[in-house]
Design a protein around this nucleic acid. Sequence first.
DNA 1: GGTTGTCTTGGTCGGTTGTCCAAGTCAAGT
DNA 2: ACTTGACTTGGACAACCGACCAAGACAACC
Lengths: 210, 210
Amino acid sequence: MNRLPVAERREQLIEAALAVASRDGIDAATVRAVAAEAGVSLGVVHYCFQDKDELLRAMAHAITSANLERSLGELPPEADDPESVIEGVIDALWAGIRDSRGPQLLSYELTTSSLRHAELNQVAIEQYRGQWAAAEQVLDLVERSAHVSWSVPRGTLARTVVAVIDGFSLAWLVDGDSEAARAGLQGFGRFLATVAVPSSLEADAAATLA
Amino acid sequence: MNRLPVAERREQLIEAALAVASRDGIDAATVRAVAAEAGVSLGVVHYCFQDKDELLRAMAHAITSANLERSLGELPPEADDPESVIEGVIDALWAGIRDSRGPQLLSYELTTSSLRHAELNQVAIEQYRGQWAAAEQVLDLVERSAHVSWSVPRGTLARTVVAVIDGFSLAWLVDGDSEAARAGLQGFGRFLATVAVPSSLEADAAATLA
DNA sequence: GGTTGTCTTGGTCGGTTGTCCAAGTCAAGT
DNA sequence: ACTTGACTTGGACAACCGACCAAGACAACC
């Protein structure tokens, strides 16, 4: 095995853990399986991480960051009317989920594991704080792109967005009906449009001049 | 230990498994832990169940039935206007969830476990088929109580109801904010009211909204 | 009262897990 | 060249898991 500084070895092991857990589930992410996936021997894992839990926490942090980046990596849609903007954002978000079934399922496994095991206590709340913050940023993006304002508190709306996406994603993981999920999310998008009101004249003018 | 016919012993073990798994998580529901919880010795479990998986499947079936009964056990609300009827139903549903944190979390653990382990393959889909059917029955109940018809296909709406409840429940399990969950669900209830039209106008609305 | 068949017991077995460690290997600095 | 310290190896360990079994205990029936 190539020799690597511990920091890089850690990153490699985190990616290996992510690969194993996404493919075969969180329970399959044993120290041995991760070492095998990374092509290193068993002791290396405990040389780089104090605990198995420390490895899992690092893996959770990695997947949370990846999810966050993916959510915010959506391009601001071109359309002008709020309905089309929302539709475009939802389609992009849903495509991201549909194309990463393993990691998506792993996210739920991590959440439930975190709620049961004290050593992973912080994982779930960090996951959701990240998701709520990301949802708020997406809502901001829609506000600016579609020249609207939300008639509902931002935090409340963000929590709802995350909840709805979570719910439809979980159902899709169970029965694999992508079309039902897409349709349901688009239905929620039409509801979102009903709580978006046109921006004030000053804001509109400022946006136009800029 | 009292001697029991195998059928009753099975029921007792299922309840013991449910107790252990609700309290300490699905991973804690080992054969030994279940036997200890039931106060029987180790061999009894394998005398009553061929596999540990058979025990888990039986437990999943039990919790699914319990959830279904709980959802349908809600009294038809007294109010006449659709908004109040929906509000009452949602409050009752939410109260049922809020008062059973352990079993609720166990349901999600069962879903994710089912999606990973082939031996539990049917568990998740049965869970959700049951929930979707229950949601449809609740929607029927609201239709009759509030004298409205849904302007959206029943199945689609039921799937949305389950998804939203799932999403808010999961978030509540993570951060424990009961008030946010209740508020979010009531917000969804107000949306539901917008797709409920008075019974006489059913045909009209169906033609308008597709 | 003896027999039959159901239920229970307590232990054993092989396999897997997380953790740990002594020894070995290698690159860099003196 | 030699020392030092970072990194790797492969095995060992105790603990726990699901599964299994021979033997015992009990109730019901002939």
